Amino acid sequence: MRGAKTQGSNNRRRATARLARHHTHVAARRRHFLHEVSTRLVNTHDRLVLEDLNTAGMLANRHLSRAISDAGWGEFARLVSYKQQWRGGQVLFADRWFPSSRMCSRCGTRNRILTLADRVFACDCGHRLDRDLNAAINLAAWGEKHHQTQAREPEARAPVINVRRRDGAGPHSGVGETVPDDAETDTLTTSVAVV
């Protein structure tokens, strides 16, 4: 037996500290990835369409729950929303009942028998496409149909007060957020659907 880890022993404390460092490292890498992808999307698109998914219900599926919680969909939506707000872009949320993956992106008919195991969308009209790509096309079309045409005024922000930092008081980003200067943006007029 290699290094007994009985409760209260030094080996147990070292193993616990090593595991905590590993979890911290994995969490930092996931957070970095989400920031990287959200910044890239915001820099290249003025309008983004996200699905309002029932993640709490999906977490009840024991086969998918770990992958869903590891992906951090809620955190990703939050990052995209505040970064897009900084640059004056638009984030649209498609209703959770919108059939993005079950609707044919060519003719608009619904495939009601499509299951999660079906990775290729096949329609009676002969259209065959990857299920996720089909959903992205449908969400982009939904975004084109539902976007607001009038320009929005930027939100007025008050300075942050009662902040204890070496830099002094003033507007500072929250934990895990970047500042608007980090979002070096280019203005394009395309839309993207994030599935």
Rank of each mutant, 00 (worst) to 15 (best):
T189L: 02
F93Y: 15
H127A: 03
G74N: 07
K83V: 12
L133Y: 08
G8I: 09
A156N: 04
R31N: 14
F93Q: 10
A20R: 15
G174P: 04
G143K: 05
H127W: 13
G108Y: 05
T115C: 03
R87F: 02
A140E: 08
W97Q: 03
L34P: 01
G126A: 02
R96W: 10
T109W: 07
V160S: 10
R119L: 02
T189Q: 03
H45I: 09
G126Y: 04
G170M: 03
D124Y: 07
C123M: 10
K5M: 14
G8Q: 10
A20E: 14
I161P: 00
H63K: 13
D124G: 11
S38F: 04
W142V: 06
H147K: 14
M58L: 14
D181E: 15
R87V: 15
E36K: 15
R102D: 06
R78P: 00
P180Q: 09
E153P: 05
T185P: 04
D118C: 08
N111F: 00
F98H: 06
S173L: 08
R40H: 13
S38P: 06
N111C: 11
P154N: 10
L139R: 01
A140K: 06
R131V: 00
H35I: 03
R21N: 12
T39M: 10
V91W: 09
P159K: 06
P154Q: 13
A20M: 10
A17N: 13
K5D: 07
E177N: 12
V42C: 12
G72D: 04
R13E: 13
G8C: 09
G168V: 05
D118N: 15
D182N: 14
E155Q: 13
L133F: 05
L116F: 03
L116Y: 03
E153F: 01
V37L: 08
L48F: 02
T16H: 10
R13G: 04
N134E: 01
F93V: 08
A151F: 09
A141I: 08
R112M: 09
Q90G: 04
T187C: 06
F93K: 13
P154L: 13
E155H: 11
L79Q: 15
A135K: 02
G168I: 09
R40L: 08
T178N: 08
R62A: 04
V194S: 04
N134T: 00
R21F: 10
V195E: 00
Y82L: 09
G143L: 06
R152P: 02
N61Q: 00
V37R: 14
R66F: 03
R152M: 11
V163R: 13
R14A: 12
R131G: 02
A67T: 06
G170C: 03
T190A: 11
H147A: 15
S9H: 06
G108S: 09
A117S: 15
G126V: 01
L79P: 01
A15S: 14
H63C: 01
T178A: 10
D70T: 02
T189S: 07
S81V: 00
V175Q: 15
Q85I: 00
V175H: 14
N61D: 14
G168K: 09
G174I: 03
N10R: 15
M1C: 11
R13V: 13
S9C: 07
L64F: 08
R106E: 11
P159D: 12
H23P: 01
A67R: 12
A122M: 04
H22R: 14
S38N: 07
N43C: 15
V37F: 05
R21Y: 08
H146P: 03
R66P: 04
N43K: 15
L64W: 06
G108C: 05
S191D: 01
D130Y: 00
P159G: 08
